[in-house]
């Protein structure tokens, strides 16, 4: 497989995780650790397939998923903000309930306990973007994807803009950094937090919708830990959208490489470990490098001070003269 095909594969694989990670950043910024992403994503998968089945169109299915998961996030937000429930346990509760309910509800909704296959007529249509499709290398990577992929690729930049150039973004960062000060300035922190948590739900639901609508089916446990991978990307990025994008690219690239290299005889378990090891390394490297460089820079500074300090020079001269007198 050549490099452009690999990159095209990366793009396809990273989009669901990217959407979920971008949603989780909103929660992360207001200091609510987003452990419920897995549950939101799985709910999005199931609801997207259900919506498509009911309404006959994948886009309506996507909207169905986004809205309902947003409502789920609203319930979570209510419990956390109004009733001061511990957000960790509430998130775990949501994960567990969603995992159980999606299996439970398959039978009454679809009448079958097998996996749900959608008709191929209901598949997401893929687009041939006019300008891009004629450029040879770029076409392989960015052409022939479904709508949400393109949205997701542009979203980090949109969110970066929202964070740093809009009022809401400012309120969000202020609420997260120091809530009392934000309240003192007059920001309605309650509204900010509600909107942030609901956005998390909306985007995570869209991520799940993308996953299941691309595969055109739903099976139990479809998310398979992608919510936690997104969590890792969020933590790696410390809440910055562009850095989260890079983190998701890293994970997507690793997944794509794993698919490729597995046919070369390397045991697949070691290949699957690769993204996780890389994530830890990438998390640990910057502080290590910083610490090391601090140490050397500081000691070099110290050395220079000691060499040029008049008092030290004077005392050295004194000692020299004392010693030479002996």
């Amino acid at each position: 497989m050549n490099i452009t095909q690999l990159l095209g594969l990366t793009v396809r694989l990273l989009v669901p995780t990217l959407l979920v990670a971008l949603g989780g950043i909103f929660s992360f910024r207001i200091k609510v650790f987003p452990l419920g992403l897995e549950g939101y994503m799985l709910a999005g998968c199931f609801l997207a397939v259900t919506g498509t089945y009911l309404f006959g169109s994948p886009y309506l299915g996507m909207a169905f998923a986004a809205i309902l998961v947003m409502l789920l996030a609203l319930i979570f937000a209510f419990f956390v903000i109004e009733l001061s429930v511990n957000p960790v346990i509430c998130a775990f509760a949501i994960n567990t309930i969603v995992a159980g309910m999606t299996r439970f509800l398959m039978i009454p909704v679809f009448g079958s306990s097998g996996r749900i296959y959608l008709d191929s007529a209901l598949a997401l249509p893929r687009f041939q973007v006019p300008i891009i499709k004629s450029i040879p290398i770029v076409a392989d990577i960015f052409n022939n994807h479904s709508a949400l992929v393109y949205v997701a690729l542009l979203l980090p930049f949109v969110i970066q803009f929202v964070y740093y150039k809009t009022n809401y973004g400012l309120s969000l960062r202020a609420t997260g950094a120091y809530e009392e000060a934000a309240v003192a300035v007059g920001i309605s922190t309650r509204k900010v937090r509600y909107i942030a948590l609901m956005t998390t739900g909306c985007l995570a639901g869209l991520g799940g919708a993308q996953l299941s609508l691309t595969a055109n089916l739903f099976n139990v446990g479809m998310t398979d830990g992608r919510g936690f991978t997104a969590l890792a990307a969020i933590v790696l990025s410390a809440g910055e959208p562009i850095r989260a994008f890079l983190g998701c690219i890293l994970f997507g690239l690793c997944d794509a490489l794993v698919l490729n290299l597995s046919s070369e005889g390397i045991p697949i378990q070691f290949l699957s470990m690769l993204p996780y090891i890389l994530a830890i390394l990438f998390a640990v490297m910057p502080p290590v490098i910083r610490k090391l460089s601090e140490r050397t820079a500081f000691s070099k500074l110290q050395l220079r001070i000691r060499q040029n300090d008049p008092e030290i020079l004077a005392s050295r001269a004194f000692h020299h003269s004392v010693n030479s007198e002996e």
Partner: peptide
């Protein structure tokens, strides 16, 4: 009854008992 009901119950217990 599907055994999933147990995990649903567990989830609800976690949910409601987290409310003080």
């Amino acid at each position: 009854v599907s055994p999933e009901i147990v995990s649903v119950v567990e989830g609800f217990i976690m949910f409601f008992s987290s409310v003080n």
